[in-house]
């Protein structure tokens, strides 16, 4: 997936996560994560964001995520949405009940 612009998905509401994606030429995936449940779920959130980027074939990007206790499914959906928007792709393959 080719990232073309900066894009955002999600909100700052409780149980949501706001993910901002910025295209990069190199340097791999740089993740800046803050979370209200950092101690308990910081590792897990990072893992889900990186997995989602990898699944969509994104190799280089700056991803800023502000988490307010989102579940894994939300983290995955918001990250995916931000990446699709950054790639200016409308027809992503959405999954339900994963």
């Amino acid at each position: 997936m080719d990232l073309k612009r900066t894009a955002v998905a999600g909100t700052m509401e409780s149980s949501d996560i706001m993910v901002t994606v910025e295209p990069r030429e190199s340097g791999g995936i740089v993740l800046e994560l803050t979370s209200s449940v950092m101690k308990q779920y910081g590792r897990r959130i990072e893992q889900v964001i990186r997995e989602t980027a990898a699944e969509l074939g994104v190799e280089n990007a700056l991803i800023c995520a502000v988490d307010k206790g989102a579940l894994d499914c939300t983290v995955r959906a918001r990250t995916g949405a931000a990446l699709f928007r950054a790639a200016e792709q409308e027809n992503g393959t959405w999954e339900v009940g994963r």
């Binding site: 101690k39 308990q40 779920y41 590792r43 897990r44 579940l71």
Partner: peptide, 10 residues
């Protein structure tokens, strides 16, 4: 199952 298993507090 809903929330995932939290890391233990250090």
């Amino acid at each position: 199952a809903l929330a995932g298993r939290p890391d233990p507090i250090r």
